[in-house]
Simulated scan of single mutants.
Amino acid sequence: MKTAFIGIDYIIDIMHPEGKIARSAEQAASRQVIANANKILAIAEKNNWLKLLVKVGFSANYTEQPKDSPMFAKAKQLGALSLVGRGTDFHPDLHADKADMVIIKPRVSAFYCTELEAALRANKIERLIIAGVSTSMTVQSTSREAHDRDYEIIVVEDACAAPTQQEHDSSIEFLKNIAHVVNVQQLEKEI
């Protein structure tokens, strides 16, 4: 089955201790999310899967930033998620150079106003391996959209994190309704 790995928002502002809105940084570090994402990239390379990294970001003047969004409203004020700053760079330990494509998204879902669907269709992808930060936002949102677009979905639990373990666990329980949930070790054995 044609497969793609989608790694979402492994960027400094969201999940690195130096990030401007890095509510998930502590959980991501303790869960070794970047090390696990790198393992998935290696598995993807070995299996010839399409490797896509997705990151949220806004132009220098924040034109596409949703001003009334409780989540994004303060981004400009904080100087967060600017595509011209360091905050939208991938985590320095992530092997981002292994990606076949980097996709920029202006909202929570990796599908919204991005080139993701075109890349998946052009490569005749049927199954998506999804992981990212945060579990409760971008992983859930992207997985829901993928489900509604009839992709088979596998969420790699130990390559995801949320601001709290409880929020992560709750999101994973929800995701089990629309996706097969595995850890990196299971991914390598089962796929």
Rank of each mutant, 00 (worst) to 15 (best):
M1C: 11
D9M: 13
D9V: 12
Y10C: 04
I11K: 02
I11S: 06
M15N: 08
P17Q: 04
E18K: 12
R23K: 11
S24P: 11
Q27N: 15
A28G: 07
S30D: 15
Q32T: 09
Q32G: 10
V33Y: 05
A35R: 04
A35N: 11
N38T: 06
L41Q: 06
L41M: 11
A42D: 07
I43N: 04
A44W: 02
A44Y: 00
E45W: 02
K46E: 00
N47K: 15
W49Y: 03
K51C: 00
V54H: 05
Y62F: 05
T63G: 07
Q65D: 01
P66H: 07
M71C: 06
A73D: 10
K74L: 15
K74T: 15
A80M: 05
L81K: 04
G85N: 13
G85C: 09
T88R: 02
D89S: 13
D97W: 04
K98L: 10
K98S: 04
A99E: 03
I103G: 05
I104K: 13
V108G: 01
V108E: 09
C113Y: 13
C113N: 14
E117C: 05
A119E: 14
A119M: 12
R121N: 09
A122S: 14
N123Y: 03
K124S: 14
E126C: 06
L128P: 08
I129K: 12
I130M: 08
T138R: 11
V139C: 09
Q140A: 02
E145Y: 01
E145Q: 06
A146E: 05
A146D: 00
H147F: 14
D148Y: 03
R149E: 00
R149N: 05
I153F: 07
V156E: 09
D158Q: 02
D158W: 05
D158S: 03
C160K: 12
C160P: 07
Q165P: 11
Q165E: 14
Q166W: 05
Q166D: 06
E167H: 14
H168G: 13
D169W: 07
E173S: 06
N177K: 13
N177P: 07
A179R: 03
V182T: 09
V184W: 05
L187Y: 12
E190T: 13
I191Y: 13
